[in-house]
Amino acid sequence: MKKFALIGAAGYIAPRHMCAIKNTHNMLVSAYDINDSVGIIDSLFPKSEFFTEFERFQEHVFRLNRNPETALDYVSICSPNYLHHAHIAAALRMGCDVICEKPLVPTSEILNELSKVEQETSKRVFNILQLRHHPAILSLKDKVDKKSTEKKYEIELTYITSRGKWYMESWKGDPRKSFGVATNIGVHFYDMLHFIFCRLERNVVHFSDECKAAGYLEYENAKVRWFLSIDADDLPASVNGKSLTYRSIIVNGEKIEFSEGFADLHITSYQEILSGRGYGIEDARNCVETVEFIRSSKVTPPSNCEGHPMLAGLLR
């Protein structure tokens, strides 16, 4: 049984990490968040310590780590995106391996810095790249790996996850903290595309605002038109009123169904990490570099057939 601490216990994604710790038969020893709405802990780890001040949490971990019998093995990080770097570095220096939500960090420069901290502490950072474990994605990757033609796949990726007015009032609506919609809701899709279609060769941004983004990515084995949105008005009529989320990947005109199967992906991610098969800093580098480029790119109108179909209504 491994001993865990968790940073960001009041966040949206924290319960998935707690459930993953529980379902892999491990123990949450301590948790931290500046907010105290963490009642979920009672149903999973009622004996866990909880702190609302990072200094007290850190000192508690240092005390635990003096004794091999109480020392922590992992710190899971579910804090806001802009705090990941600081929390990862702190956890490594506490003597723990780290499991961090996406996006790992915003830039390749910070990835390099974390690599140095890994070397200094002899501890590891693992990123939750859950789509690499989705059965439909693995099936598509297997198909691509076995392809016999050099012609690139034609891909249309659409992800709409509706968010209410609270989103813009939270840290997620602040691009200094979330790094924008393409990074916050899209980074794991860019990782998935790299995972399946290999090296990224071209990256063009066609549209970007606080609620949605669109562009074109060309990989070694695919041409991808992508659209991401948190605006409920973008939901297609087929799901409007039935679901707040729409995920679609169309490959050479054929839709790949992957709307389901997300519930257990964090558990699978933890199982792989604990078995020594987790995804680390270098595995996350491509998607970090992809969103870093998207954030800094000038918006360019689509040319030829590179624009996503949903762009038509935005560019009138």
Rank of each mutant, 00 (worst) to 15 (best):
M1P: 14
M1T: 13
K3V: 05
F4R: 06
A5L: 01
A5K: 07
L6R: 08
I7A: 14
G8K: 08
G8W: 03
A14N: 09
P15T: 05
P15W: 10
R16S: 15
R16C: 08
H17Y: 15
M18G: 10
K22N: 09
M27K: 14
L28C: 05
S30F: 01
S30V: 08
A31W: 04
Y32L: 03
Y32C: 06
D33G: 04
I34S: 11
S37A: 14
V38C: 13
G39D: 13
I41A: 05
I41S: 10
F45D: 09
P46S: 03
S48R: 02
E49K: 11
E49D: 12
T52Q: 13
R56G: 01
F57W: 08
F57Y: 10
H60L: 00
P68A: 09
E69W: 08
T70E: 00
T70H: 01
Y74G: 08
Y74V: 10
Y74E: 12
Y74M: 06
I77L: 11
P80V: 07
Y82P: 04
H84E: 06
H84K: 01
A86P: 01
I88Y: 00
A90T: 13
A91Q: 05
A91G: 07
R93Q: 12
E101F: 03
K102M: 10
P103H: 11
L104G: 03
S108E: 15
S108T: 14
L111H: 00
N112V: 12
E113V: 06
E113G: 02
E113P: 02
S115T: 10
E118R: 01
Q119Y: 06
T121P: 03
S122F: 13
S122V: 09
K123F: 12
F126M: 07
F126A: 03
N127D: 13
I128L: 15
Q130R: 15
Q130E: 14
L131C: 09
H134N: 07
I137W: 12
L138I: 15
L138S: 13
K141D: 05
